[in-house]
Amino acid sequence: MNLWLILAVNSIALGGLLFLLASGFSLIFGLMRIPNLMHGSFFMLGAYLGVSFLRLGAGFWPAAILAGLALAGTGAVIERLLLRRLTGKPQAQVLLTLGMALIVADLCLMLWGGDPIEVQTPAGLTGVVPVFSVVFPTYRLVVVVIAVAIAVALWLMLERTRLGAMIRAGVDDPQMARVIGIRVSRLFSIVFSLGAGLAGLGGFIGGPILSVYPGLDQDMLPLALIIVILGGTGSLAGALVGSFVIGFLYNFGQALFPDLAYVILFVPLLAVLVIRPQGLLGKLAP
């Protein structure tokens, strides 16, 4: 298989992982109007916890689910106990998530050490499957399938359920949502918890692809930021498209311009900021 196809396959898989990261980030941003600077930490913490579950004897998929649930719980606790005390002070909330990110990074270093941890691809998924004329590593294909399944589930939840309708109302206009009797604070807990859980799940199932290492959080957070600014806050479709676009840009950038791959990612972002400052960020500007 030639280099370009391998790159494309990897880009698609990375895009799936990024969607798990960015969809929650986007919903949190859209609803609570703050960028959650510990979202990368959720991703990394999920990966490390999953590794520990594996070591305790759990299978790969149970470990993934447990990691997701553990992070959902963590997210709920942080929202309830900390963020809620700062309601109405968005800048303080952002700084709080930044402080928490520093804490999580150091805790992970203390508990899991400084060496990267390789996560074994689950048995039975180590091979390749042919998709059309492309040979696709099975595990990467599974990651993409999971991401798409979660995208569909999230979409159904947002479009078809009462909870989803309330979240959409909150994203559109929190004041109005309050006026029509939606308990926005409860929505905040749910969405923050959901976002943390998805990021934690993504972190662990990304393990066999990205491995787990200190600094994973700082590598992922900017990607989530870029995707959401590109795709629009609170927009699931935007997060999905943005994730795959960034997945491609990242992998191809790394292959073609290794020194500048990281910077190339920010080019579309700068373009958005310069050309359409009101378009995507305008809604956020108070």
Partner: peptide, 22 residues
């Protein structure tokens, strides 16, 4: 300065990350 408040915070954060990345 295309934004204030959270937008300003995010844009400065992103710019800082770009310089760090380079």
């Amino acid at each position: 300065l295309r934004g204030t408040g959270i937008s300003f915070l995010m844009i400065t954060l992103t710019l800082g990350e770009i310089v760090w990345g380079i």
